[in-house]
């Protein structure tokens, strides 16, 4: 059974729809017993950090969540709440990750960061594919744009050593894939970063520590690549 954490932050329905499309048995719950018992836990979220943390603390869910041992996936606000501290409402978060959450600087570029953006330097099991999948959404011609975009956006600025840790061919399916983002706050890059994205500045598109996984984008809204990522999580 997959438990989806019920709290005062939205988009639970989209996550449930995505799980149903994959045929998963999922329940929305805030019952600590069910959360501990579940095979996997998903922590979704669209909302505001301080009120969400207050809600979790009032119910003792903060302690429950950070002590879970099964595969755990935070999405969007979920990722931010798993970090150490968020600038949104000056909030101390769950502290599963050591990274901090900051607001995108306002200026000429639109905030929130909304739309499809590519992720790079992918690491960890969420982004691994054992066999190349012919799923639609990453057509073969992507390979061409991948090369030119990397050269333009990334290649020149990031030294080769930075990319040495990325297992070749494993994150291949997802490397440079576009995911759907909607957020005004971002987690900084750090030792637990497992995917990078760039908007105004480079930030953590995904983080992982042991059984705790988190993505800033919305896999449930990211077409086939997102669905594949959720499937990877369900197969952990």
């Amino acid at each position: 059974m997959i438990a989806v954490v019920k709290y005062n932050a939205g988009n639970i329905r989209s996550v449930m729809n995505a799980l149903h499309r994959l045929g998963a048995d999922a329940t929305v719950t805030d019952d600590p017993v069910l959360l501990r018992k579940a095979d996997k836990v998903i922590f979704p979220g669209v909302g505001e950090a301080s009120s969400a943390m207050r809600y979790l603390r009032d119910r003792g869910l903060d302690e429950v969540l950070k002590n879970l041992n099964q595969p755990f996936l935070g999405i969007c606000l979920g990722l931010q709440l798993m970090c150490k501290h968020s600038e949104e409402g000056d909030t101390d978060c769950l502290g599963i990750f050591t990274e901090n959450v900051k607001r995108f600087p306002s200026g000429k570029v639109n905030v929130p960061h909304m739309g499809w953006n590519n992720c790079n330097e992918l690491k960890g099991p969420l982004f691994e594919v054992s066999t190349p999948s012919p799923l639609r959404g990453t057509p073969p011609f992507k390979g061409e744009s991948l090369l030119s975009e990397r050269t333009l956006d990334q290649g020149a600025s990031s030294p080769p050593s930075e990319r040495r840790g990325v297992p070749q061919g494993r994150g291949g399916y997802f490397e440079n894939s576009d995911f759907y983002f909607v957020h005004s706050y971002y987690a900084e890059l750090g030792s637990q970063t497992t995917a990078k994205c760039e908007y105004i500045l480079p930030f953590s598109a995904a983080l992982q520590k042991d059984n705790f996984h988190a993505v800033q984008f919305h896999p449930e809204k990211s077409a086939d690549v997102g669905q594949k990522l959720i499937k990877n999580f369900l197969e952990l």
Partner: peptide
């Protein structure tokens, strides 16, 4: 639509 569609 929400049940069937996996984009915004």
């Amino acid at each position: 639509i929400a049940e069937e569609i996996n984009i915004p």
